[in-house]
Amino acid sequence: MSRPRIATVSLAGCFGCHMSLLDIDERLFALAELVEFDRSPLTDLKEVGPCDIGLIEGGLCNAENVEVLRDFRRQCRVLVAVGACAINGGLPAQRNGRDIGRLMAEVYHARPGLAEGSGIPNDPELPLPLARVHPIHEVVHIDHFLPGCPPSADAIWACLTALLDGRDPALPRPLIRYD
């Protein structure tokens, strides 16, 4: 019988939620027995395929984030918003009061110490930033929210094991944290 497939991704994230996933420590061996990893920063797969569970870290800050999120929604049966950024934009959403054009100009053009002629990168290869950072549920349907900045390893483990058992991953109070 084939094992359940899990995909993971970091959008406008810091990879901290993935580090917290790794914090389940030896339980990673148990997880490796239970599941197969699809696209993830921990595997080499470039595209997400049909999966049972998708874990999304980070909010949406640019066009590529939106595209990848939509791919995940198409392919994953259950999508989990992992961490404060995916849930409400998180600390990156503190840029929402500022004009993105001015922010880019301040960093790439007007900042002291830049080489002569530095300007805002404009290669089409680069994804354009969105005017504001958004939580992922504003773009696709999200099945479960796993709060925390990051969620603790125990919270991630409780959520994963519940989903793999076909249970509702409702967290007990001590595992719910937003900070």
């Binding site: 918003a81 849930i87 409400n88 934009g89 959403a93 929402n96 009061g97 504001r132 958004h134 939580p135 549920h137 504003e138 999200i142 479960h144 929210f145 796993l146 709060p147 409702a170 967290l171 109070r173 719910i176 944290r177 937003y178």
Partner: peptide
């Protein structure tokens, strides 16, 4: 919110 078991929002952020 912890006591009520709130995990995520269901509405748009006002920011």
């Amino acid at each position: 919110a912890y006591a009520a078991g709130m995990t995520g929002p269901q509405w748009e952020e006002f920011y």
